[in-house]
Design a protein around this nucleic acid. Structure first.
Length: 572
RNA sequence: UGGGCGAUCGACUAAUGGUAGGUCAAGUGCCUUUGGAGCACUCAGUCCAGGUUCGAAUCCUGGUCGCCCAGCCA
């Protein structure tokens, strides 16, 4: 048996039980000739995040593997929380991830049908109007260990239930005064079966149906039937809904409608990442981040702005698979797939984040030459570009040490290194200001090493990036780190809260970066690797006179690892 | 405490009674005009105790541990 299968999309898919179920159902013709039908059913009450990406990938990806279809359905049964702005952002995010739905649906489209089905259950003696208050209903429900008690209204006559429910719909009663409940079993060990509420009165304006309705179906009375209406064969949802499955089936069976089946899988958890809509909302409201699309947010809009790509997210989803265990995936896994994607596709450029001037003393004062640099060593078809070289350059502050620590291969007095695609240079002297801080490094170059190789075959240990001082463009660079300092943001001391684990250094802004001139033409969708530094993309805050680049991810840094291991602090 | 679900390298995951494998992370070496990338290698696991079987991660029994459920949220 192969350890992984291909989904026909070129990704390495982890085998998973969902696919096994589908394959078996197709084989046994469980749904007759019907094709596999799935749905992605978000409530339009917030922005999608990376956790939803997993669900989207499964819902769309698996159906597609079997030649099936997927609907995008908005589970919009609670008008108090839902807004059109969210239905728009959700559509944008799903498309961005690379998926297209068969049909765009809304649970609210089914309100009339749902109402008819409610009447059907009342007539069959399976539903009743309850006048108990919310508090009383809660008390009657019992507890995890004690059975519930019947409501005094449980055995109302059918004609009375019909009358009351019609009047609920007609708007005769205030919010909270009555509900319609299914008559199942108040002693069931499964609390969801203790006469669950089907409809509540809500005099609220719905983002689509306006004021047409003042009673709204609960999730449980809407979801399964919506699936059934759409002939969804495999209704995948997260594990916390497992307890709802008996109710999901109960409604479908009582109604005698298309038998959609619910299958639960584990929700995505990521280290250093918060994936609770409520908490994310709090981050935004308390202005701890700049908004839903802050590049540190795990929202799809946030990671998109950060520079993550749909290709990488899909590859990640394919790799993590789906099970029924409660795990927490290392964020490194996501980062790996993102680096992997960008390494293959991102154009290279040279950018000096923290500039230090390097003056080449034996290079003619007024001379400028253009060196040819590969746009992507991983992809020769990406071609080359010409980058200006001159007497005064900027190099990275980190790339020079007056007193080099052991194993430091970069520039230091007397040491020769290569400037990428240009020349060998040797540091000769340094210039300091009155305070003794380093201002400039002066050096000499070997004119015979043009292009980066010396005819005498001499080797250097380091190749460094650089920009020509007079040609460089300035930019603001935003360096993002993980939002939280702990793998589990919920791991905070007694009396504290999750925000105690916020990293105050999750955003570092560098205002004086110097970039090679070609970067002046960067587009929002372009992805760059600033050589030896990391992956970057232009931010939407950029203006022609003020470029802003976001760091998507840093490159792996072996030197940083060595430094950490040897306990050396970076000096200057 | 009632019910449901689950437990495989540090993390994710495969093996569907027949060689415990892959990916990430970590480490070592090679290579390198990115200390990037790549290549090779290494480390490392079946929750526990019994049982069935020629053979158990898989089946059975009993434990242990973890997650979910007491919204007129989804």
């Amino acid at each position: 048996m192969p350890p992984a299968e291909s989904g026909g999309d070129g990704l390495r898919h982890t085998a998973n039980f969902l696919r096994d179920i589908m394959a078996e159902d197709v084989r046994t013709q469980k749904f007759g000739d019907a094709v596999i039908q799935t749905r992605f059913p978000p409530e339009p009450n917030g922005y999608l995040h990376i956790g939803h990406a997993k669900a989207i990938f499964l819902d769309f990806g698996l159906a597609d593997e079997f030649g099936g279809k997927t609907n995008l359905r908005f589970d919009d049964t609670n008008p108090e929380k839902e807004e059109t702005v969210y239905v728009e952002s959700i559509q944008k995010d799903v498309r961005w991830l690379g998926f297209e739905w068969e049909r765009l649906c809304y649970a609210s489209d089914y309100f009339p049908q749902l109402y008819e089905w409610a009447l059907q259950l009342i007539r069959a003696g399976y539903a009743y109007v309850d006048d108990l208050t919310a508090e009383e209903i809660r008390q009657h429900r019992g507890t995890l260990t004690e059975p519930g008690k019947d409501s005094p209204y449980r055995n109302r006559a059918i004609h009375e239930n019909l009358d009351l429910f019609a009047r609920m719909k007609a708007g005769e009663f205030p919010d909270g005064s009555r509900v319609l409940r299914a008559k199942i079993d108040m002693t069931s060990p499964n609390l969801n079966m203790r006469d669950p509420v089907m409809y509540r009165i809500l005099h609220a304006t719905h983002h689509r149906t306006g004021d047409e309705w003042c009673i709204y179906p609960m999730y449980d009375f809407a979801h399964g039937q919506s699936d059934s209406i759409e002939h969804v064969t495999h209704s995948m949802c997260t594990l916390e809904f497992a307890d709802h499955q008996p109710l999901y089936r109960w409604y479908i069976e009582q109604l005698g409608i298309f038998p959609s089946q619910q299958i639960e899988f584990d929700r995505l958890n990521l280290t250093y990442t918060l994936l609770s809509k409520r908490k994310l909302l709090q981050l935004v409201q308390e202005k701890r981040v700049s908004g839903w699309d802050d590049p540190r947010m795990p929202t799809l809009s946030g990671i998109r702005r950060r520079g993550f790509t749909p290709e990488a997210i899909r590859a990640f989803c394919a790799a993590i698979g789906a099970t029924r265990t409660n795990g927490i995936t290392d964020i490194e896994m996501l980062e790996h797939f993102q680096r992997d994607d960008l390494n293959r596709r991102a154009r290279r450029a040279m950018a000096v984040l923290r500039p230090l001037k390097l003056v080449i003393e034996n290079y003619p004062n007024d001379q400028v030459e253009y060196v040819e640099v590969q746009n992507n060593p991983e992809d020769p078809s990406a071609g080359t570009r010409r980058v200006p070289f001159s007497r005064e350059l900027y190099i990275e502050q980190d790339d020079f040490r007056e007193v080099p620590p052991p194993k430091y291969y970069r520039l230091s007095p007397g040491k020769e290194v290569r400037l990428r695609a240009a020349y060998f240079v040797t540091a000769q002297s340094i210039v300091k200001d009155a305070d003794g801080s380093l201002i400039e490094v002066h050096g000499t170059y070997d004119p015979a090493s043009r292009g980066g190789n010396s005819p005498d075959g001499r080797k250097v240990k380091s190749t460094m990036h650089w920009v020509s001082a007079s040609h460089a463009i300035s930019a603001e660079i935003r360096l993002y780190n993980r939002l939280f300092t702990r793998p589990d943001p919920y791991d905070f001391p007694e009396g504290g809260d999750i925000f105690d684990n916020l990293d105050p250094h999750s955003l570092e802004i560098l205002s004086g970066a110097k970039l090679e001139p070609s970067l002046a033409h960067a587009l929002l969708d372009d992805r760059y690797q600033f050589e030896r530094v990391g992956y970057f993309c232009l931010d939407a805050d950029s203006t022609p006179g003020h470029l802003v680049f976001n760091r998507t991810l840093a490159l792996k840094d072996t030197w940083a690892k060595i430094e950490k291991k040897t306990g050396k602090e970076p000096g200057t």
